[in-house]
C-alpha cells in the first residue's frame, strides 16, 4: 500500500511541477516508461511469490531504464532506431504479459 501511495505522490508531483524534459531526452521517454512498467510488474509478482527484495527491485528498475535507453541511443546512431525500439517493446511487452498472467494466477487463482 505504501509504495502505491508513493507512486501516486510521484504522479502528482510530476503533474504539478511539469518539469521541462530536454529535447534530446524525449525520444527515450516512451521506452523508459515500458521498461519501468516491466520492473513494476516484476516487483508485484515477486511480492506475491514472497520473494520480493527491495535492492533487486531498485536495481532492476534502474538497469531496465538505462539499458532500454542505451539500446534506443545505439539504434539511433546505427540508423535502426525504430527497429530496435520495436524489439525492446516486444521483449518487455512479453515479459509484462507473462508477469501479469502470473499475478492474475495469484490473485484470482485463474
Amino acid at each position: 500500500m505504501i509504495p502505491a501511495l508513493g507512486l501516486l505522490a510521484g504522479v502528482l508531483i510530476g503533474i504539478f511541477l511539469q518539469p521541462d524534459v530536454p529535447v534530446w531526452l524525449q525520444p527515450y521517454l516512451p521506452i523508459a516508461v515500458i521498461a519501468a512498467l516491466d520492473a513494476v510488474f516484476g516487483a508485484v509478482r515477486a511480492v506475491l511469490d514472497g520473494i520480493f527484495n527491495d535492492k533487486v527491485f531498485v536495481v532492476s528498475f534502474l538497469s531496465n531504464v538505462v539499458v532500454a535507453a542505451f539500446i534506443v541511443f545505439l539504434g539511433d546512431k546505427l540508423g535502426v532506431g525504430t527497429q530496435l525500439s520495436t524489439g525492446v517493446v516486444v521483449v518487455l511487452g512479453v515479459r509484462i504479459f507473462s508477469n501479469v498472467a502470473s499475478i492474475r494466477r495469484h490473485l484470482f487463482s485463474a
Binding site: P3, G10, V11, G14, F61
Partner: peptide, 10 residues
C-alpha cells in the same frame, strides 16, 4: 523508487 516511477510516468 515508487515516487521516481510515478514521476517518470506523469
Amino acid at each position: 523508487t515508487a515516487v521516481l516511477l510515478g514521476l517518470l510516468f506523469s
